[in-house]
Design a protein around this nucleic acid. Structure first.
Lengths: 144, 144
DNA sequence: CTTAAATAAGATAAATATATCCGAATTAAA
DNA sequence: TTTAATTCGGATATATTTATCTTATTTAAG
């Protein structure tokens, strides 16, 4: 469904959001520990999230990553997914046709469309605040 | 969503099914032409489908691939997907956790589960006959 | 000013997925 | 029995994704 990079990105954002709620910046090492991911690869992904302005970074001592508190409830999963995996999950054909639409549908176009729309809806309506709270309360987990 | 190999497999099966309905065997070359895929890679995928008994193969002159007519309506997309991509699409966690269940859910477990179930349902209830007919009537396409 | 802690960026490595190539085995027909 | 057409299997090549490493830059504190 999502690339590994994207899975890491989502989990990282949730952890950064949770930390930012307490005004704590976090390092790639801390993130990787919390989401069980390779440190350097996670750091690279964080750079993409910073470039796209979902996450803020601060260099030097006492630096790290954070998400502006006001933005935490405004950032949806769809924004993160789009930064890392692009929009093929929203627009792509289920069978990989370059062109697949009402006029020229692949064999599963209609059925697949419904699922894709549900997924789109899910990603658009789920925000980092909800998810961070779920982790904070222990109702959900970022690693096993 | 699906691997490229799996996309090819699904499209190949649809074309083979359509051909088998007319008692015509097809070669990897013919398949690749119809679904716009690399010939040799497609041939490899066909071997997997043969090993799993979804498709029958006949060597030598006048040989090729076919699907037993009685099986065409019985083969669902889920069977093809499982042969090529395995069952991670049915059981895997949306965020890649090794363990993700009611007792130890990832942050999107519940929402993702719903979509996964819909997808499972779609794949289980869609069979090769429906799809082959769609191609035959020109209502759907295997390539652009 | 120096030092330690941190991100940024680019190069490289490893793993996996996708794709190609070639020789062997099989088979129907001439 | 020969030939041509075909699948099968293994080896190899290429591309993409995942992961690591190394150096430069920034920054707060002592």
């Amino acid at each position: 469904m999502f690339s590994k990079a994207c899975e890491y990105a989502i989990k990282a954002c949730i952890f950064v959001a949770k930390s930012s709620m307490r005004n704590e910046r976090v390092t790639p090492k801390q993130i990787a520990d919390q989401i069980n991911s390779p440190v350097a690869f996670t750091a690279k992904i964080m750079q993409d999230l910073v470039k796209s302005n979902l996450v803020a970074s601060y260099r030097g001592a006492y630096g790290g990553f954070e998400i502006e508190q006001a933005k935490i409830a405004e950032i949806s999963l769809s924004q993160i997914v789009e930064v890392i995996d692009g929009d093929k999950i929203y627009n792509g054909c289920g069978l990989g046709l370059d062109v697949c639409n009402e006029n020229h549908p692949c064999p599963v176009h209609e059925q697949y469309k419904a699922i894709r729309e549900d997924l789109k809806q899910l990603l658009k309506t789920t925000n980092l605040e909800q998810l961070a709270v779920g982790i904070e309360t222990g109702d959900a987990f970022l690693k096993t």
